[in-house]
């Protein structure tokens, strides 16, 4: 019997876990966008409610994944070091206060909820960053990537919800550009990490290329909608471009996250810096690790 040293794809977090990062990212991004709308005096309650729905859906999915769902409250036991506990605590404030803001229409409450949503998204990013067994998540650039992706998804969904004015198009474009920059930085970081070679191969394969294509196409459509809107021509054209661009921005983010959590998450391979000296052979130092 022989056991390989190669890294293997983690098999414990599936699409339900990915759903938590998808729902949490999109929901947090949408809540932040809705709070900006509230601060500018625009309607925000529907977007805020939808954002909370995304967050709740994500948390429900992860609840379905854990091995002992009826012990779920134990998740709150370790705030000192666990980002998962911190995520749970922030969610515990986010959801009820969010419902209060939706019910009352309070701008102040909406802004506080947005701050909590930003904290929630940050916790999700740090959950991945703290996973030392998965080099693709351990990468420092994962934090800005998760933050920017959440903002891009949320502002994209806000466009779908019918907000096609220039300011929301500009916000979605900015978030998309931030995500693009974060993605490039993340890829560059991975390329410099030998242990992440198999993850890079996943990101070079067809599904990831499709998600990336959707991301760039969405970005282009949002830019086109912004330009068309600025020129003041074909309002219906702006609406269509914004809707499709927003949908692509969200779908691309979901696809990349699903790949990141489920397909590109490989464990660290065993690594031995020295091989044993046996028989008459001399000692040799040799890097024996390989992805």
């Amino acid at each position: 019997m022989s056991q390989s040293m190669a890294s293997r794809r983690q098999r414990y977090w599936d699409l339900r876990a990915a759903g938590n990062f998808i729902g949490g990212g999109t929901g947090a991004g949408l809540i932040i966008t809705a709070a900006l709308a509230a601060a500018m005096g625009a309607p925000f309650r529907l977007a805020l409610a939808i954002g909370l729905g995304f967050v709740a859906a994500g948390l429900s999915l992860v609840w379905l994944e854990i091995g002992k769902p009826w012990r779920a409250l134990n998740v709150f036991f370790h705030p000192r070091t666990s980002w998962m506990t911190r995520e749970g605590i922030v969610a515990g404030g986010l959801v009820p206060l969010g419902l209060f803001a939706v019910a009352t229409g309070s701008t102040a409450a909406a802004i506080v909820v947005a701050l909590l949503a930003a904290g929630f998204l940050f916790c999700q990013a740090r959950i991945l960053r703290a996973a030392r067994g998965i080099p693709a998540w351990r990468q420092a650039e994962i934090v800005p990537l998760i933050l920017a992706t959440g903002l891009a998804e949320g502002s994209g969904v806000y466009l779908i919800a019918g907000a096609h004015t220039l300011r929301w198009l500009a916000l979605a474009l900015l978030a998309g550009l931030l995500r693009e920059a974060a993605w490039l930085a993340y890829r560059a970081g991975l390329a410099g990490t030998e242990a992440a070679a198999r993850s890079l191969a996943v990101f070079d394969a067809a599904p990831a290329r499709l998600a990336r294509g959707a991301q760039l196409a969405g970005l282009g459509l949002i830019a086109l909608a912004l330009a068309t809107g600025a020129l003041g021509v074909t309002p219906w054209g702006v609406a269509v471009l914004a809707w499709v661009g927003g949908a692509l921005a969200a779908l691309a983010g979901w696809g990349v996250k699903a790949l990141l959590i489920v397909r590109a998450a490989f464990t660290r391979a065993a690594a031995i810096p020295m091989v044993p000296t046996r028989g008459g052979g001399g000692s040799r130092a040799r890097q024996a690790s390989r992805p």
């Binding site: 091995g67 002992k68 036991f77 996973a131 067994g133």
Partner: peptide, 20 residues
């Protein structure tokens, strides 16, 4: 009796030493 089976520890172990 405390573990919730979230598997986060499995992701955090650099030695691939945990199972569920």
């Amino acid at each position: 009796d405390l573990c919730i089976g979230c598997s986060y520890c499995i992701m955090a172990c650099p030695y691939d030493a945990r199972s569920l």
